[in-house]
Simulated assay, not measured.
Amino acid sequence: MTGRLFGRIARALSIGAAFGAVFAATTGWAADPVHLKVGIRGGISEPIWEIVARVAKPRGLEIEPVVMAGSLSPNEALNTGDLQANAFQHIPFLRDQIAQRGYKLAVVGNTYLSPIAFYSKTYKSLKDLPNGARVGVPDDPSNESRALIVLRDEGLLSLRDGFDAYNQTATLADIKENPRKLQIVEVKSVVLARSYQDLDAAAIISSFGSQVGLNAARDGIAQEKRDNNPNVNIIVVREQDKDAPWVKPLVESFQSPEVRAHIEKELAGILIPAF
């Protein structure tokens, strides 16, 4: 009798385990969720990643957004394994970081476009800038390039022949013609956002501008083109993890209807979904 009872219990446990395995495979549920630390910048990214974390739970992921402030590098922390992923940069920035520091990192998905725009307390258009105007641009290579491209597209300067924004970054040395003799000042993005009024105009990334109440669509006097733009923000992991089973549900959790709805409703004019 005791042997038969144990046999029934064993069969029941076996059936339950099999059902659990099928349920996990078809729904993404896992008894032991995968814990992921994702490096982000503070501000508008934080509520977005709170939504991502909620969406990811039924997919078997426990996401811990880690706000990297100041000079802390989400790419360095990812490369050393302190993070499992990060989401704060666009492809040209990552390309420059890999070239400079030899990081072994891979892009696994798009997030949004954080457009760069020019702002001014004095002028309504870049075309109104006088000769010798002081113009602030970000001091990191990729975002400085974006600002110079806007100035080029607005007809204020020209860049060297053959410049390709998809594969190259432009610096002040790449300016071919500057007929208005603009004084272009390189400044850290976080500083530009808080002191743009001290310049005739300044190029500010939306994620920094939003921290001081600026909205590119509402307040900008010129904005980068959205079509065929290589500066879409991305989710990045280590090369060795790019095919890990948690990567796909991580990307799907960001590229979800819930995240899209939040961006389009709460961040209109600041961010543009890129999925």
Rank of each mutant, 00 (worst) to 15 (best):
L267H: 10
R160Y: 01
A85L: 09
S210E: 13
P92S: 10
I184H: 08
D128T: 07
S71Y: 14
G132A: 05
D153K: 01
I272S: 03
A18G: 04
V108Q: 05
S120Y: 09
V137M: 05
E186P: 01
P65E: 07
D96V: 10
K265E: 14
Y119A: 01
A268K: 14
K248C: 04
N79L: 01
N75M: 10
G39T: 13
K104W: 03
V67K: 02
I51H: 11
R218K: 15
L157A: 01
K248P: 03
A202D: 05
F275W: 08
A25P: 03
E252W: 01
A53Y: 12
A203V: 04
I15C: 06
G269P: 04
A18L: 12
S114K: 00
L5H: 15
M1K: 10
R146H: 09
K188P: 08
S125C: 01
N79F: 09
D241K: 03
P58T: 08
V237P: 01
S125Q: 01
P130R: 14
G20K: 06
L126C: 02
R146T: 14
D243K: 11
P115G: 05
I63C: 00
D32Q: 14
P65C: 05
N228F: 12
E258C: 06
A173I: 02
K265L: 06
Q197S: 08
V187R: 11
A268R: 15
G132W: 06
V107Y: 13
T26S: 12
K57N: 04
D161H: 10
N143G: 02
F88L: 12
A217K: 07
G132D: 08
F118R: 00
S71G: 05
A31R: 05
A10T: 14
P257N: 05
F254W: 15
P179W: 15
E252Q: 13
F254D: 09
L5Q: 13
K121E: 14
E239C: 01
R8L: 13
G43C: 08
G209A: 03
I9V: 15
A201F: 05
Q223H: 03
A77N: 06
D219L: 02
L172V: 12
N143S: 11
W246E: 06
V185N: 08
E64C: 08
Q255M: 02
V38Y: 06
R146L: 11
P230K: 10
I184F: 10
K248N: 13
P179D: 11
V34W: 04
A106G: 02
D82W: 08
F88A: 11
K188R: 14
A202L: 07
T169K: 09
V259A: 07
A56P: 02
F208G: 00
E76F: 14
A85D: 09
G7D: 10
K242W: 12
R54I: 11
I263P: 04
S45A: 15
